[in-house]
Design a protein around this nucleic acid. Structure first.
Lengths: 148, 148
DNA sequence: GTAACTGCAAAAACTTTGCTGAGTT
DNA sequence: AACTCAGCAAAGTTTTTGCAGTTAC
């Protein structure tokens, strides 16, 4: 099951709490970037996020996007995804879930599956496992159609 | 089970065949880079690979490392791994397997597990699944020890 | 009012490209 | 001899950093 768009309001109270706890201000930029990321289903790069936030905050700079993403990662509100292309990719959806990765256009979609979520990390000597993440590679709907 | 170091000789005949089939020369650089990657268990970045190949080919350039990695990926001899961090990461081990990712030092180790390899992609509307890859995140032996 | 933050510009890090002489077949 | 290739240097991207004025609390 794909994650439904905006299944819930973004956890803004959590963001506010964590900022406060860390002695950080809750600036309009942080708010806007977090909300834009929460509202995106495609796990945007910093550049893409910049484009999406600009209409709301026209004077924002790309450097702020980068710094803010680092901050949000440190606050545990956002995750950097492993990816192959040229730019970093981010996800604001922190509940356990997996990913559908399109090998053609590099799009990444969230994906929830109970069986996969039930996977436990096998024991491996020396390595301390914390989480298991599954990526399903293939072609997204659009690229499947395009190549047919 | 971790992949044993150098469990087999690097598939050099395959490399030679594929080069020939594609009309490419089997140059000393391509050979050295492929062998260095095969012999590495840590999925090095281009820069790291550069350092490892230099003793053997002191005049090689970083640009050649990049170009050759692209070529090897096109030949299907090497894969670019999804990763966080600043540089690309490569793997010469093409048999199906999974990865142990250290969230502290970003090291990536190969990992073979029959149960995980038996995983089949669940059906998802529109998405054409091709393969399933599992990453186990946590702390590698060294970083586990360091933080204890 | 104080500490933290943004935006700018410059720099650093990473990767790609164009060219020329050298190597492969 | 024809074609491909490596190495160099320059350019292109992506990301980080330092600083001065501004904003959040």
């Amino acid at each position: 099951m794909r994650r439904p768009a905006r299944e819930a309001a973004p956890p803004l109270e959590t963001l506010a709490e964590r900022c406060r706890a860390a002695g950080l201000s809750l600036t309009p930029q942080r708010l806007a970037i977090f909300q834009a990321l929460w509202g995106s289903l495609d796990h945007p790069s910093p550049e893409t996020l910049y484009a999406r936030v600009r209409p709301r905050l026209p004077s924002i700079s790309l450097a702020t996007i980068y710094k803010t993403l680092d901050t949000l990662v440190e606050l545990g509100m956002v995750a950097e995804l492993p990816s192959t292309g040229d730019a970093k990719r981010y996800d604001a959806y922190m509940a356990p879930h997996h990913h559908l990765v399109c090998d053609v256009c590099n799009d990444i979609e969230d994906f929830v599956d109970e069986k996969l979520s039930a996977l436990r990390a096998p024991k491996v000597g020396g390595f301390t496992a914390q989480s298991v993440s599954v990526s399903i590679h293939g072609r997204c709907r659009r690229c499947s159609r395009a190549s047919a």
